[in-house]
């Protein structure tokens, strides 16, 4: 663990003293995500490299700007993986950027979210202090869980420097089954199957086709397939890769909204096209509806909407007033001068 990053810390201290905003950036693969970030660029690409990897401990520690691809290649050599299956959205994707966005992929609903796999995190706060939270062990309940709290904060709390993650063995086998059915039945099936001891690891519904991925021992996959029926989808791995990376024409549409909803939410009667993931909990909606209508639709169903791609001023669901003021106080606790990633998460941060 590096004790200090003197140059970065000094850059932060000076910016704080002068009240200058900083836009934290490494690979830039997530530039499309969140609000427009004001301020001068703070290039963190120097924070690169795997610090420690102990396959037998299931723990990997890397500097924040280490390319995700490099980490995944190293894990694959040992038959392991990042179980939250993060999307890259470009070759330049880094671990820190992925966690700052809180992105998880198809395995999210079955294995857990990005934050679930974070064990420790070091960051430079708005005073230029280098702070370490959590650690490299599976269990640590000493102090507030700042490491997981910081996941998804879009860089507004500090500059991530090092991150420790829990990693998992890759499944021995995977198959993808495909079913033709309508959306209501697909949602019901995804929820019903998820409540049974089946080796599910991903689910997708789009235009009349339900696809589910099964992961585990070969014998278990055979048994599950016999129970579920359906057709085996050839090139299943490629199907999930393209879905994860938004490498299909559907995801090139803009504006593209991401609605996170309770998994049992019935089909959304909204104009435009949709793609469902995460056992029903995630609905991608390509629509020209107004932002206000989409945010209201998500809220009415107990969820929240994000303007994922496309132009628009408000990108994230508004917080209740009491929660927003708590966010402001927490932001000030980490970044009192308000210099990090202004505008990226909320316009007034």
């Amino acid at each position: 663990m590096a004790d200090a990053y003197p140059e970065l810390q000094e850059a932060v201290r000076q910016a704080a003293a002068q009240g200058r905003a900083l836009a934290i950036r490494a690979g830039g693969s997530k530039d499309f995500y969140g609000g427009e970030t004001r301020g001068e660029r703070l290039d963190v690409n120097a924070l690169r490299g795997i610090v420690a990897y102990e396959p037998r401990e299931l723990v990997l520690t890397a500097k924040a700007a280490t390319p995700l691809a490099e980490i995944e290649a190293l894990l694959a050599e040992q038959g392991q993986m990042l179980a939250f299956e993060p999307p890259h959205y470009g070759a330049a994707a880094t671990l820190g950027g992925t966690l700052a966005c809180g992105f998880s992929g198809p395995r999210r609903a079955y294995a857990g979210a990005a934050r679930d796999f974070v064990l420790g995190l070091s960051l430079i706060d708005g005073r230029g202090e280098h702070l370490h939270f959590g650690g490299r062990v599976m269990k640590n309940v000493a102090g507030y869980d700042v490491s997981r709290f910081a996941v998804g904060s879009l860089g507004v709390l500090g500059v991530f420097t090092e991150i420790s993650l829990k990693v998992l063995p890759r499944p021995r086998h995977e198959i993808t089954l495909q079913f033709e059915m309508d959306e209501a039945r697909a949602i019901e099936a995804l929820n019903r199957w998820a409540r049974q001891p089946l080796p599910l690891s991903a689910g997708s519904f789009h235009e009349g086709l339900l696809a589910v991925r099964l992961s585990g021992a070969e014998s278990a996959l055979h048994a599950a397939r016999a129970q579920l029926g359906g057709e085996v989808l050839e090139h299943g791995a490629e199907f999930w890769r393209r879905l994860k990376e938004h490498d299909t024409p559907f995801f090139a549409q803009a504006p593209l909204w991401r609605l996170a909803l309770p998994g049992t939410t019935p089909p959304l009667d909204l104009p435009g096209r949709q793609w469902l993931e995460w056992g029903g909990g995630l609905r991608w909606v390509a629509t020209d509806m107004s932002a206000a209508e989409i945010f209201a639709a998500a809220q009415a169903r107990g969820g929240h909407a994000t303007l994922f791609r496309g132009a628009g001023a408000q990108r994230f669901q508004a917080l209740a007033p009491a929660l927003l003021s708590l966010h402001r106080r927490l932001k000030a606790a980490f970044d009192p001068a308000g210099i990090f990633n202004r505008g990226r998460l909320y316009p007034d941060f």
Partner: peptide
């Protein structure tokens, strides 16, 4: 919330423990 993830900071993580 009952939906995956939440807008804003992960307060659930902060409060747990």
């Amino acid at each position: 919330s009952l939906a995956p993830d939440s807008p804003g900071f992960d307060l659930l993580a902060l409060i747990t423990g």
